[in-house]
Design a protein around this nucleic acid. Structure first.
Lengths: 190, 190
DNA sequence: TTGAAGATTAGACTGCAGTCCACTATCCGC
DNA sequence: GCGGATAGTGGACTGCAGTCTAATCTTCAA
């Protein structure tokens, strides 16, 4: 599958690991804006170019670091249980909001960065935005199949409304808690 | 009301006018990111400090320039007509989306900037976000009064969902057209 | 007329992301 | 071991937003 090993000196995996670890730690300690690339490479003990060999921008590095750390976060809600989709959606949103207590500020910074760099926007959209959108649409479709949601509703539009509410609150520093999750679900299934 | 004139040399109003005009033109020609402060002050024939005497950041200047240009944009929907609120909301959204064909990119940049500068976020929220939020909530409340919308629905939550959908599409470079406006309204009043 | 208050100017300066370069280090096939 | 390919290093460099400074201009009030 992976074909032949590329010729030349192999990339030092430790450097990538160290960079991601340092980036994640600094971002959580200081906030995205206050972390300079120079500080990251210094603490990772690595040259500037090494970072840019692997990632295009600071945002790409942080996205990957946060992404690895939180691949459990917002994991696909398990369908196994007999719970109704409404509860499933609510729990899903609550879980996301909880993780945002830690990574909300970073996510805001990444969204901002994605508006200023077309290449990063593509990557961010593919790795973060689309997967979550698909989880919600899948869940809503299932709700329709089970008769919990009227078949006349547009699953795609509802998904946009739900994600939008979440983004809007996040970007406007509003409260993202269980109560808000309940409200969203209540209006969605109204 | 205005009290006494402040002492000292009065601010040159022409400079402000020229700066806003140049900023607006350049942003529309080149896009927010490609416009440098140096280019703005050069073409306005004004010193750097003069710009920063009036605005804290490039974003503040552009916000004010765009805001003046578009104070008709998204004007309060007139209630006079006998139209139902559903139609009113749809027309309101369509009108916003049309203006975004011109200013959408700039608005995206301003939203991004507001995530990176707390002071600008406050100003942006007060001048742009809140007024529009209040227009929608007022409209929805009226819809409830007229019996077009079930009194059980949460007007605030619906407003967040509607604005969120719009922001989400905008920030993810999705299509913002009359069809999307219709979809939003359909789900809101579903 | 003079002086205080504040505006304007030109330009130097800081801090940061990202690029470039010359040089060195490591791996591979021969 | 040698040469080609690629990675890593240190440091210089660019471009830009925003700050700072020293000097000059404009207005008012005494």
């Amino acid at each position: 599958m992976s074909g032949k090993r590329p010729s030349g000196r192999p990339a030092n995996q430790d450097a990538s690991t160290a960079l991601k670890a340092v980036a994640l730690r600094l971002v959580r300690e200081l906030g995205y804006e206050k972390v300079s690339v120079s500080a990251i490479i210094e603490q990772a003990g690595v040259a500037r170019q090494t970072l840019y060999n692997r990632w295009n921008t600071k945002a790409d590095l942080v996205l990957e670091a946060v992404f690895e750390q939180t691949n459990t976060y917002a994991a696909e809600p398990s369908w196994d249980g007999a719970e109704d989709c409404r509860t499933l959606l609510e729990d899903f949103l609550i879980r996301i909001f909880e993780h945002l207590r830690i990574y909300g500020d970073t996510l805001r910074a990444l969204i901002a960065a994605s508006q200023q760099d077309a290449k990063f926007h593509k990557s961010f959209h593919a790795n973060f935005v689309l997967p979550r959108e698909q989880m919600i649409t899948a869940l809503l479709r299932r709700a329709q199949d089970r008769g919990e949601l009227s078949p006349g509703r547009s699953v795609e539009t509802l998904s946009t409304l739900i994600h939008g509410a979440f983004w809007y609150r996040l970007l406007n520093r509003g409260v993202l808690n269980a109560g808000f999750a309940k409200e969203i679900v209540a209006e969605t299934f109204a």
